[in-house]
Design a protein around this nucleic acid. Sequence first.
RNA 1: GCGCCCGUAGCUCAACUGGAUAGAGCAUUAGUCUUCGGAACUAAGGGUUGGGGGUUCAAAUCCCUCCGGGCGUACCA
Length: 542
Amino acid sequence: MEEYLQSLFNEASKKLNYLNDIKITFDVPKILSHGDYSSNTAMLLVKRLKKDPRQIAQEIISALPVDSTVIEKTEIAGPGFINFFFTPAYIAQITKDILAREDNYGRSEKYKGKSANVEFVSANPTGPLTVGHGRNAVFGDTIANLLEWVGYSVDREYYFNNAGRQMRVLGDSVRLRFLELLGQKIDFPEDYYQGEYIKDIAKSLLDEHGDKLIEEPAEGIFKRTAEAEIFKDIKHSLERLKIIHKIFFNENSLYEEGKIQKTIDAFKSKNLAYEKDGATWLKLIELGNEQDKVIVKSTGEPTYRLPDIAYHIEKFNRGYDLMIDIFGSDHNATYPDVLAGLKALGYDSDKVKVLIHQFVTIMDGGEVVKMSTRKANYITLDQLVDEVGADVVRYFFNMRSITTHMNFDLLLAKKQSDENPVFYLQYAHARICSIVKMIEKENLHASTKNLELLSTDEEQQLLRKLHQFKNEVQLSAEFFETHRICTYLEELAAAFHKFYTFCRILGSERKLAEARLSLALATKIVLKNGLTILGVSAPERM
RNA sequence: GCGCCCGUAGCUCAACUGGAUAGAGCAUUAGUCUUCGGAACUAAGGGUUGGGGGUUCAAAUCCCUCCGGGCGUACCA
């Protein structure tokens, strides 16, 4: 419908030149009596034309070559909105498109030929993924899905570092637990990894190798085994949520391939780096940031900024049109340095989109659970999936804007899981599947021949909702907002249940029953496609 | 102190990125089933959008200021 309106305005702009100077948009009004679509174009032109907006609106309407079989009414309302009312018969035609495209309905080719990289999770393998990582993981994967739905080819990537201080501490944590198992009295430092999983890894090493490892350094087999075991668990946790990264990028490879040094050299050759107090500093003030920062410590080790910049250069060199980084809010101070560095080296930093999500506050029975990987005081992602299921976890993390500091009450999630909105959506889907099966036994089949019969309020409301899906997918992808899909699907499911309550299929006149059945099928398709984007299953029965 | 994010119904969150009368779910209350799945539907109550100023035809949304919370503010990542 929007495309049609757009084409009307394109025609009109040939007569009314001023329409070319302004961005014409169409909104779906909140209130039914304001029509199917509404445009504020006239009001935006008030300043320029110095005329009454309602008068401008009238001028525009007169210039629109409206086809009365498509639009039954246009009106000027309020301060100067132009409202469009489509004919019920036209609105019902959407059913045909949906049934024809099925699983692909809602996809577009707007960004066909473009490539994107989505980097997310990226937790170092020092411990199991926590609920906090869950938000990052689910959101990142869903953003990747959305980008695919609008035509991008997408690589999902996981960036990690197995060479830093964290990992040394990890190796030594395992070594100490190992010695402990051999009966040695050890003093386990407070800032080491306290989790049980460290003991498990130590135990498995003991089982396999006995006390032969007693003289081994922490950085050898202890660290290697810990990394391998933990990574295996991380990948498994992600797979349970249907998340599979195509690329695991090890920061270490940047050193091995000399890319870190190359980046330092690049900064130096542009006179953007200098030595002070034995360290190498980046001239970030000159690049517009708050203060200069160290990129190579006096020990000779780079700070995270340098490999981060080198890593993004690496991604630029792979030719992506869009690179998305997904971070928790604890990283919000780091990325401006990285972007400034990239820009200074001549890369188009606008291609890098940093999405920061706020923290998840875990509540358990009204009490805040403070989390720390090192202290092993956390709820793992696996535990969460065990308790509420993958679908609920995915839906829950997707259903809120990433800017909100969300509360997750475990007690509530467990207790009220039956009332979670995800079940409402799945129920609607399962209900349709069951209806269709049942009705086809009556030798009644969906038909789009008489869609104009779908004229009740409930049918028309449902049809209008279906119309919005494609646009909703596009907006969600362009604004990088997964929660819009959830909101949309809840409205769609509600519209369906209402339709289903008031409009009988069995018992209606045959042509009407066939049309209604096709509407139900179209709803099923859109529900399923929406859930697919979110990574939530659409069960045929529950 | 400074930077980023947040503050909307009792609770958890939306609001098409500046649009018309701020909406959903949960909770509360009152209803709807001899037939297609009641995990449903109908209706009611509940708001000075944290406070105050400003910008304009129009502000929950943008700007200023104050209050409250989260995360940062490293030669940790």
